Amino acid sequence: MGNKLAKFKEAAFGFGFLMPSLLGFGIFLFYPFFKSVYLSLHSTNPRGQIVDFVWFDNFKDILGSEHFYQSIKISFLFALMTIPTCLIISLCLALLTHKKNKINIYFQLIFASSIAIPIGNASVIWKILFHPTAGMFNYFLSFLGIDPIGWLTDPAYALISVSIMTVWISIGFTYLVLLSGIKGIPEDLYESAKMDGAGSSAMVRKITLPLLSPAIFFMSVISVIGALQSFSQINILTEGGPANSTNVVVYDLYQEAFVNYRFGTGSAQAIILFLIILLFTIVQFRIAERKVHYS
Score class of each variant (00 low, 15 high):
56 F>P: 05
56 F>Q: 04
56 F>W: 05
57 D>W: 00
57 D>L: 11
58 N>S: 05
58 N>H: 07
59 F>A: 02
59 F>M: 02
61 D>E: 14
61 D>A: 10
61 D>H: 01
62 I>G: 02
62 I>S: 02
63 L>D: 00
63 L>P: 05
64 G>V: 01
64 G>K: 04
64 G>S: 05
65 S>A: 06
65 S>D: 14
65 S>M: 04
66 E>H: 02
66 E>I: 00
67 H>C: 06
68 F>V: 03
69 Y>D: 01
70 Q>I: 03
70 Q>N: 12
71 S>A: 15
71 S>K: 12
72 I>K: 07
72 I>H: 04
72 I>A: 14
74 I>N: 03
75 S>Q: 12
75 S>P: 10
76 F>T: 06
77 L>C: 06
77 L>D: 00
79 A>H: 06
79 A>C: 13
79 A>P: 05
79 A>T: 15
80 L>T: 11
80 L>V: 15
81 M>H: 07
81 M>D: 06
81 M>V: 06
82 T>D: 12
82 T>C: 11
83 I>L: 15
83 I>C: 08
84 P>F: 08
84 P>G: 09
86 C>F: 07
86 C>L: 00
87 L>N: 09
88 I>F: 14
88 I>N: 00
88 I>E: 05
88 I>D: 04
89 I>L: 15
89 I>G: 05
89 I>E: 02
89 I>M: 10
90 S>G: 13
91 L>E: 02
92 C>Y: 11
92 C>P: 01
92 C>D: 05
92 C>R: 06
93 L>V: 05
93 L>A: 03
93 L>P: 08
94 A>L: 12
94 A>P: 09
95 L>I: 10
96 L>M: 14
96 L>A: 15
97 T>W: 10
97 T>M: 09
97 T>N: 05
99 K>L: 07
99 K>Q: 14
99 K>R: 15
